[in-house]
Amino acid sequence: MNTATQVQEPSQRTTISPRLAKNYRRNITERIIEFLLMLCALSAVFTTIAIVVILVYESYSFFEHVSVFDFLTDPQWTPLFEDAHYGIMPLVSGTLTISFVALAFAVPVGTIAAIYLSEFASHKTRETVKPILELLAGVPTIAFGYFALLLVTPLLQMVFPDLPTFNMLGPGIVIGIMVVPYIASVSEDAMRAVPMSMREGAYAMGATRFQTAMRVVTPAAISGIVAAYILAISRAIGETMVVAIAAGQQPNLTFNPMDSAATITAYIVQVAMGDLPHGSIGYQSIFAAGLVLMLMTLFFNVLGHFTRKKFREAY
């Protein structure tokens, strides 16, 4: 112990040979580098903490004015009106309805595309299509908003003349189109991860491609595929621009996709576009809505994470 402290003393250090002194400096630099890098990594933790703190803090102020009971049961959401109501249900119903429409479109199309790519397509087709799926996943959502408002809804209006300009069906389908590449590529990865020996086992029994795909590969990859669905739900719930542009901004407690309605995200955008004073209840309400959104997506993210983990453990 004694000798160790002695080395730390300045008088002792001056007698250190130049070579060791260089090593000492080296060690200090190494330590500093490692510390800085660790700070970078910790930024992820800080971001999460900051998100939670800010959402909870502002929501807390919000719930000082609004009872949690009213928040959960009031059928109206009109924080900006004279007669303010703070029931989150209409926003949640809009969010869920649009997500449901999106998934109803994306699950069949994405799954079929994944099965086709994984089990039917030639190597060349697969290598061509997969990068395009990635490209499609990188298209900004604002462009899809344009697509929903000015192309998909007018097309739908030809089939359903009563469909209002702002509705949940059009944006729902467009969000479905947005998540198809995600479902397709994650499910395809899951199916590719099924060992070849299992496919060979089926083919050796005289199974056709379709039988092998449907009765062996898909069941074997099912938890990976379901994880893709769950994570896609989370994306649909959190999607903002498409609904803000094309679904309308009126909170509406309905599950009818032919109606116009607002989602949680659309409400946040609507308020942010206005000019609400910092600290007002309207300002706080977007954090309360954001907290609900965060909890909903967190639920699906965690669920999806564990489903995928289960799949990875199997193979």
């Binding site: 992820a44 971001t47 999460t48 900051a50 998100i51 800010i54 959402l55 994570l231 989370s234 994306r235 719930i237 959190g238 999607e239 903002t240 995200t265 946040i268 955008v269 942010a272 977007i286 954090f287 954001g290 959104l293 965060m294 997506t297 967190l298 993210n301």
Partner: peptide
């Protein structure tokens, strides 16, 4: 987890 947080939440942050 952060990779899956909706972008609008970053706006609130």
């Amino acid at each position: 987890n952060l990779a899956a947080v909706p972008s609008i939440i970053y706006g609130l942050l």
